[in-house]
Structures are given as C-alpha cells and as structure tokens.
C-alpha cells in the first residue's frame, strides 16, 4: 500500500524563481490495485513518482510504502521502476543489463537467466539480446527498460509513461504485460497520456493538474469517457498553457 500524506515539492529555479511541482498531495493506493495517474504536461506526475522512490525529497509531508517510510531503503526492496525516457548502460547487451538489474536485487544467476529469457521472450527482444543496447531503436530500449524493471518480480511496479516510443505491437505487448501483473495481484502505479489504455487497465485514476490532485475515483464509476472528464477537469482549473 502506498500512502502520500500532504506531500509538497517546490523546485528552485534560476534567479530565485520557484515552481510548485506537487502541492499538498494526499493519495492512497491499495495493494493489488492498478492506479492510473494522468494530467497535462508539467502537471507533476513524474515528480510524484520520484518522490515516491526517494530520488528527490518532499519539502513537507510523508510518503510510505507498505508502512515503511520512503526514506528507508528497505521500502524499495520489491519495487520495479520504469523512468520516463529511460536510458540504459548502452555499452552493455540486454542480457548483461538484465543481469545487472537482477544482481541489484540480489537474485541468483540461475534465477536471472530464467527470468531474463522469459521477459526477453515476452517483449520480443530475444533476437537482439546479445547486441549492445547502444545499437537499439527507441522502442527496443523502452522494452529493455521494462524488462529490467520487472526482472526481480516486484510487488509494486511504477511505470512512468510505459507506452512512449512503442509501435502498436509493442503497446499491445506492454498492455498485456500490465494486465498480467494485475492478474497476479501486483500493485501498479502508471502515469500515462494514453487515456484509453488507462481506462481499460486501471482500477482507479487520479487527475493531477498543476501539482494538485483534482480528481480521483474508480474507473468503474465513470459516467463519461475518461478523455471528456480529463478535459473538463483541466478546464475547471483554468489552465490553458503548460507551466
């Protein structure tokens, strides 16, 4: 279970300017739930995720994962994270990269071999697995990053724009993969701009605009298409330009 409690984050810009990326965010994601986080560009979705993973620290408020504070390294023991615009060590092959990722979570080499061949198979990367990542296309890199995030079979999967850069086939693969995670009872936190996917995959959605959580609710309770709701919520905040 993930709990955000009154989390605020302000970035200092040059010459004393400030940006409030996240304002008083309170949010609960239950275990086994698939949560979709949507919002316009610059709304604070990625910032929220980085706060959750202790890559950056909130100015105020607390974040807990399974009742461990996010500042505790142990809270991330069973977390898989796909950053937005992922970059891998491109001097490695996909195989080596997955092995590195597995080793970081202390997996044995036999489990790594098993899991990585399974994931590479699923993501249709087996052919390229022994080539260096530097020679991969954008979509191939995205798939490798997803495989690396899932190698240790995490209980909480945090995906920041998992569909970016993927072709329709790739999207379908990832879609199925997330559905499978859902079936396995994993907790999934997705940020995405592909609202149809969110609508079909997620149990619950939250709409963030200008760092505030403006709407939150079960997908099953939606009375109109998510896209319409999204546009309405954004219009209500009076936002007409990315900040």
């Amino acid at each position: 279970m993930i709990i955000f409690e009154d989390v605020c984050k302000t970035f200092q810009l040059e010459r004393g300017k400030k940006v409030s990326a996240v304002q008083c965010l309170s949010l609960v994601v239950a275990s086994g739930e698939v949560f979709g986080c949507i919002g316009p560009n610059g709304a604070g979705k990625s910032t929220t995720i980085k706060l959750l993973l202790d890559l950056i620290r909130p100015d105020s408020g607390t974040i807990t994962i399974n009742s461990l504070p996010s500042r505790d390294n142990a809270s991330r023991a069973r977390v898989g994270y796909l950053p937005e615009n992922p970059c891998q060590y491109d001097f490695l092959t996909a195989h080596e990269y997955l092995a590195y990722s597995g080793n970081l979570s202390g997996l044995s080499s036999s489990i790594i071999a098993e899991r990585s061949s399974l994931l590479l198979e699923k993501l249709k990367l087996s052919q390229a697995a022994n080539r260096r990542i530097s020679g991969y296309s954008k979509g191939m890199q995205q798939r490798t990053a997803i495989a690396a995030a899932l190698i240790h079979n995490p209980d909480l999967v945090v995906l920041d724009e998992p569909m970016s850069g993927l072709d329709p086939l790739g999207r379908k693969l990832i879609f199925d993969l997330i559905a499978e995670l859902k079936e396995q009872g994993k907790t999934v936190f997705i940020s995405s701009h592909v609202l149809t996917d969110i609508e079909r995959l997620c149990d619950r959605v939250g709409i963030i605009v200008q760092g505030r959580l403006c709407h939150e609710g079960q997908v099953s309770d939606l009375t109109m298409p998510l896209e319409e709701l999204f546009l309405q919520v954004v219009a209500d905040t009076g936002l007409d330009e990315v900040k």
């Binding site: 993973l53 202790d54 890559l55 390294n73 142990a74 809270s75 991330r76 023991a77 977390v79 898989g80 994270y81 950053p83 615009n85 992922p86 970059c87 891998q88 060590y89 590195y100 990722s101 970081l104 979570s105 690396a148 240790h152 945090v158």
Partner: peptide, 14 residues
C-alpha cells in the same frame, strides 16, 4: 545526467 543511476537507487541499494 542520463539517469541510469535510477535503476540501482529505485531498489533497496543504499
């Protein structure tokens, strides 16, 4: 710069 550091730090690596 390329955030490759995220992979390790998003796990329980101190």
């Amino acid at each position: 710069e390329r955030k490759t550091i995220y992979l390790a730090l998003s796990r329980s690596v101190p």
